[in-house]
């Protein structure tokens, strides 16, 4: 729960968190090392200095660290923990659903565990989606189109195999498709951040919600255009929000564009833990105002009411969270970590 300086309680759903193991012991090859190094560079490049972690903790943190940073020291009420396997890079995977489900079991009521699959696995991917639904009753998945798989260096949401998977998700009621839109490698001759496959997939699967993490940045204009046309496309603020510290004016331009184009109902807060921790992000976000000239040019304001939607109400709607019931359930959850 985040209590504002005015004393109001804000329900916070952290739409994008991880519980990973990127430690050298788990790295399979140079790609695994480079992957966690890249995350660590994001962490060191954009966090306030007093929030920096040592590399070894960043590579592998405990379930208690996660719980404390999100819910005790941090303002989150609930967190969506995403699965990203990267089995070509890590011996036991980077953050598998098994690892995520374990932490969710240890701390009930707090986590929504999302699955992941790789459409390039064909029939096996379909079987795996059934398994995920039956075993973990997942409500959402995280798609990572830049993941390598043997000779393949990336895939698109519009690939025929991907469509078969989304048809199954639709049928099984796995409604929330989080898509990391980052640099896919294929095809090499195109702009690697292309988001147009989202447009087609969202049109063809109206029953699914498409949450585009990082708001498609650096293709914000394309993303906004698509999200404006498609009622079922949402934007996740992970990676965009940390700019609030290093370059607050720039963050103002981004959030003004989002509010102008897609509106306050379709933007979701996400810390991208453990790249960043939610406390400073939420505190700075609550205190933030869009600079006057930018707000005037776009005719938008970031009011308290809008902030509350972005911080939790929008995600609660997508995941059918009954906030009043949840508050009651959480009242009995631990507010300190028991000694081991």
């Amino acid at each position: 729960m985040f209590r504002t300086p005015e004393g109001k309680d804000i329900f916070v759903v952290d739409g994008h968190t991880h519980f990973w193991d990127g430690s050298p012991e788990n790295q399979k090859n140079i790609h695994g090392k480079q992957f966690i190094d890249c995350f660590y560079a994001y962490h060191t490049g954009m966090s306030p200095k007093d929030q920096l972690w040592e590399k070894s903790k960043f590579e592998k943190y405990s379930a208690d660290d996660l719980y404390r940073d999100l819910f005790i020291d941090g303002p989150d009420d609930m967190a969506i923990v995403q699965s990203t396997y990267l089995k070509d890079f890590y011996k036991n995977g980077f953050n598998t659903i098994e690892r995520n489900a374990e932490v969710a079991k240890r701390y009930p009521e707090r986590f929504i565990v999302n699955g992941a699959f790789d459409p390039r696995d064909g029939e096996k991917a379909l079987e795996y989606i059934h398994f995920l639904k039956e075993t973990y009753d997942i409500k959402g998945v995280k798609m990572y189109t830049a993941e390598w798989n043997g000779a393949s260096k990336g895939w698109k949401l519009t690939d025929p195999d991907a469509y078969k998977c989304f048809e199954l998700c639709d049928k099984l009621g796995i409604r929330n498709i989080h898509v990391h839109k980052g640099p896919t490698i294929l095809p090499l001759s195109k702009d690697a951040f292309d988001v147009h496959d989202v447009d087609h997939a969202a049109t063809d699967f109206q029953g699914l919600n498409w949450i585009i993490e990082h708001c498609g940045l650096p293709r914000l204009d394309d993303f906004c255009w698509i999200a404006t046309q498609e009622t079922n496309v949402y934007g996740g603020l992970a990676v965009a929000l940390p700019f609030i510290h290093a370059r607050p004016r720039y963050f103002g331009e981004v959030i003004a564009e989002l509010l102008f184009w897609i509106g306050p109902e379709k933007i979701l807060f996400g810390s991208d833990y453990a790249i960043w921790t939610p406390r400073w992000l939420v505190e700075k976000f609550w205190a933030y105002q869009i600079p006057d000239d930018i707000a005037a040019e776009r005719g938008v304001q970031l009011t308290d009411e809008i902030k509350e939607k972005i911080l939790g109400l929008n995600a609660a709607r997508l995941y059918n969270i009954d906030i009043a019931a949840k508050k009651t359930a959480l009242a009995s959850s631990p507010f300190s970590i028991a000694a081991e």
Partner: peptide
């Protein structure tokens, strides 16, 4: 900046 920068 990163190992992953687009090769193109």
């Amino acid at each position: 900046p990163t190992y992953w920068c687009s090769p193109n």
